[in-house]
Design a protein around this nucleic acid. Sequence first.
DNA 1: CTATCATATGAATAGTTGTTCATATGAAAG
DNA 2: CTTTCATATGAACAACTATTCATATGATAG
Lengths: 109, 109
Amino acid sequence: MGHNHETIVKWVARAMPDDEVLYDLAELFRVFGDTTRMRILYALSEKELCVCAIAELLHMQQSAISHQLRILKQAKLVASRREGKTIFYRLADDHVRIIIDQGMEHVEE
Amino acid sequence: MGHNHETIVKWVARAMPDDEVLYDLAELFRVFGDTTRMRILYALSEKELCVCAIAELLHMQQSAISHQLRILKQAKLVASRREGKTIFYRLADDHVRIIIDQGMEHVEE
DNA sequence: CTATCATATGAATAGTTGTTCATATGAAAG
DNA sequence: CTTTCATATGAACAACTATTCATATGATAG
């Protein structure tokens, strides 16, 4: 491996965030990086929905949706409220919309 | 599975983008969703770098970096130019920075 | 032309992840 | 209490992905 660029490497190294931060960042984007979760997020950006409505909408099993909602909730991308037996999910905040919109712009080029 | 909400499901279904678009979106974010690639992107946001400088910086093998750069380039997140035997990589455009910054804001809450 | 250097690529492997199936929880109704 | 309904969870399996090793490409210097 490689020619000499010790100075540059050291300079860039100092500007890099902690590995832990970069790991958290990657982990966040990994949550966006699945078609099912992306479809759930998009659906919730239209309207608060209960689990079985999402399952119907995406033509998937309730169990699969529940598993994905758990991941989305852990990442604080969605929040939920209970109403009787039903649990309604919604987007947690506006970052979610902004990140998706920026991604959309990149994809649509 | 579930109680009745046919009307709502149909209403949301009409507002959903094509599956192909959502797949592309998820695919884009999947590229951000790896620690190595995130570290490469962050490094390149500081400075244009050649492959072996990145390998040194991240303490990884040149081969591993090359493989990841290929993925980043296919997703049009980085671009490259040749100078003799050396190939320099840089961020492709400002979307990359904006998306990372938004993610960072979400993570830092 | 040959040797060397920087980068790229293919195959193999180990680790991770999404879905399914079966079952558990927890709330409301009778 | 028991049943029913909506959701959650655990284990198992299949599919995918990042890294490594070995090797190939492609450019420059001698």
